[in-house]
Each structure stands twice: as C-alpha cells, then as structure tokens.
Nucleic acid binder design. Sequence first.
DNA 1: CGATGTCTTGAGTCCCGTCAATGCACGTGG
DNA 2: CCACGTGCATTGACGGGACTCAAGACATCG
Lengths: 233, 233
Amino acid sequence: MKDCTQCIIRNRAVCVGLETDELAVLGRLGRKQKFSKGQTIFWEGDDAVVVANVIEGVLKVSMSMSDGREQIVGIVFSSDFIGRPFGQQSLHSVTALTDAELCIFSRSTFNNFARQHPELEHKLLRRTLNELDRAHEWMLRLGKKTATERIATLLLEMSVRLGETGCTVDNGALDAFELPLDRQQIGDVLGLTIETVSRQLSRLKADGVIHLPDRRTVAIRDRARLQYLSAAA
Amino acid sequence: MKDCTQCIIRNRAVCVGLETDELAVLGRLGRKQKFSKGQTIFWEGDDAVVVANVIEGVLKVSMSMSDGREQIVGIVFSSDFIGRPFGQQSLHSVTALTDAELCIFSRSTFNNFARQHPELEHKLLRRTLNELDRAHEWMLRLGKKTATERIATLLLEMSVRLGETGCTVDNGALDAFELPLDRQQIGDVLGLTIETVSRQLSRLKADGVIHLPDRRTVAIRDRARLQYLSAAA
DNA sequence: CGATGTCTTGAGTCCCGTCAATGCACGTGG
DNA sequence: CCACGTGCATTGACGGGACTCAAGACATCG
C-alpha cells in the first residue's frame, strides 16, 4: 500500500485519527487484495491469521452447524473491520457477497501495531461496541419477530446501510437498492427458509409496500407502512 | 471504595493489569452498590449514565419491543462489565436476576479514565470482542436451532458459566446448579414461550438426561447426550 | 433452444404458540 | 391446623405460521 492518506475509507475506517507518519507505518504492514463475489476470505475454525479493513464491497459473516445449517451473523460494508484481533481462532467465516477489495494485515502484526497505538485500539473498541449493539438488535429480531417483521426490518436496514457507504456521512436511506443477498442468504440472515422469504416478499409486493423490478432490486414504495410492519422496537 | 487491591474480582475484571496507584485512582472514582433480585440498574432508552463491574450476582441484559415482547440478549456474571461506554443511549436494560453487588462509575468519568489508560481500554476491547463472539453464537441458536437444541445448549452454557464464577479460573462445568432464571426468562433468552420451555425440560427429565429436584435446580445426568441434543456446531 | 440455477407458488405437515385448566409450593390469616 | 389466595410451573387441546416437499416459472448462458 503506497499511500493511505489517499484511501477512500481514510475518514471512516479504524485508521481515522492516526498521524500521517503512523499511517505510513501501518500502510507498509498491510496490503490491498481483491476478492471476487463468492470467494471466502477465511473460514470458521481456521486459525485467525488475518484481519482487514473493507475498502469496497459487501461481505457476509457467518457461522454454521455440523449438519450444514448456516446463520449469517453480520453483513459488513465499506470501511468496516473484519477478523478477530487478540484471538486464536475465528468462530465465523467471512465471504464476499459482491466483488470486494480489502486492506489486509496479518493478525499478529496488526495486534502489535494496535497495542502501541491506543488511538487505534480506541477506534476499534468503539466499532466493536457498535457491532455488539447491532448484534443485540438482530437477536431481538431472531428471537421475537415474525417472518413479516423480520423481512421488513431487514429491508429497512439495508436501505440505510447501503445509503451510508458513500464517502459523505449524512446521505440518507435509499428508496431503491440492489440487494447483495440472494433469497437463500436472506433466509440465513433472518432464520427463515427460502420459501418463506419469497412468499413474504411477494406479499409485500402485492400489497404495494415494495416493488421488485428484478430478483435483486428492491424499491420501497411505502416506507411508513414498511416501518409499521417491521414493528420497530 | 477503599481498596481495590482486595477486590474479589481483582484478577478477572477489566481492572486487571492496572498498576496499584492507578487502581487507587480508579477506586476513588467508583462506588460499590448492592441491588436486590429483580431491581433494574438502568433502562433501555435511558441516557447511558453509568457503567459498572459486576462484583457478585447474575444479571440479565434485555431489549424489548413496543408491544412488550422481550428478548434477553445477554446474561452477565461476576467480573463481567455492563453499560455502554462511549455511547449516548443504552439500547438495553440491565436487571438483577439474583441479589447483586456492582462497582459503579459514571459513564463520563469512566470514559475519561479509560482514555488515559490504554491498558484498561485494551482489556475492555478484549472483553467486548468475546461478548460479540458469544452474541454471534446466540444468533446461530436463535436463527437455526430447534426448541430442544436451544434448551440443551442453554443448560450446557449455564453449567459452564456458573462454574467459572469462582475465583480460580479452571474449575470445570457443574453437573448440578441453580438456574438464576425462571421459565419465562429462559423463554426470553431462547425465543420460546414458557410452555415450550416447560415441555422441553419435562421431556429431558423423562428421558433421564437431566434431573429437576425443584423449580430452579438442574442436575445433568447424561452430559454426553445433552451435548448431542444441543447439536453443538 | 435446451440446460441450469434461482425464484415463485402450491399443498400438506409439524412444531411451536395460544388458550385454558390443573397442580404445586408458599404465605397469611382465621 | 386448615382454608384460602397468590404466583409459578406443568399439562392438555387446538390452531396457525413457518417448514417440507414438489412442481412450475423465469432468467441467463452455453
């Protein structure tokens, strides 16, 4: 990596707040790498050898059971951080849902650098606390919500998070967007089967709440109603 | 707080690693406070004004929806940390499941102290990462597991975590323990109704996997089978 | 134009939720 | 000591929402 100061996620990733010279050091420790849609960055159970910043793209974080059931426990976007610093094994896999570009560090290298740069650890802490909040909200969804509520909640969240991925901070929720997930993956996020997902989406479409121009595209036609259906806490 | 060096969670809480003099400063910033079973430390939606270490007791971390549905998103034990540093609002409530004693700090005071003590922030980061791992495992449970699997998993986890609460690190899983949760709360952890919980427990008892001497006590008679039923990932 | 993978739709089933009654432990007061 | 009330927990009957199984529609690509 030649010049982190020009990085498009410079102001949003964990590296924000580092001095120019520190950034230069960090830059020399990492490398950029591209992954294509469907590629897995690392597997559940692997020794957690790498951590990374997401420069571009959308990736899923997932866990699975021995019989093959899979749960997606997180979706990460541009400027998010992946991997498990200060740990031995990663409990989850990370897979690219779209073509993606990452800024990769070996875990031990990153650990060492982080321990010498409290500002970086602080940013990482804040980020992890936010992730924990989000995980808790997902647990509420999975534990207590109906299929319709789950779908509505996910659509709203995707419209917000996909809207955030631009460089500015304050661009609002999108009314139309392309889902980076197929039906199976939506099911794996929400704890539903592919058929239930499909039926729920069809119903929302029939009710005029959303429009589905093609398999991957969602257009929100009645955001207020979708919000109501999501039973927002 | 007079003397943190004598604290029973001295070697397990986030304060581990602080020098004696730093510990003395931190000690003056906090105060010990007792809560009785059922008392709520802070509410979801409140301004997050306090954070705390759990000295003694078991507490639940929960979120709820406007219509009253409640999901327990975490259970915390002795030496765990509660509250939301570096945030404005707490997204969850924390309530004592047993009589408990906490070491409480105002959030802003703690934030300031933490920012000046990277070692403390580091410990907090590790702890938060562990919590995130645990949250992910819970998501897998809630999203993909059957009622039987969820109950079995919870019983095993409780047997382990209740076994850890002693001062030494390496005491193993307990074969008999008192649940700090009533049936409703078990349901709120697992995303099940009270009746389903009851039926599942009765069935495990009838099958000889566990024994239920009284409402709150669980004795594991066949751990291997319980492990099998939990469909451990 | 088939071949393939993904999505949708339908029919039937089952697990869990709902509603309701009963059981059990504990406490209080007659 | 027993009658009674209260709070949980258990158990049963029933219904519904999501899963399962299976077929059909649709798009993409060779």
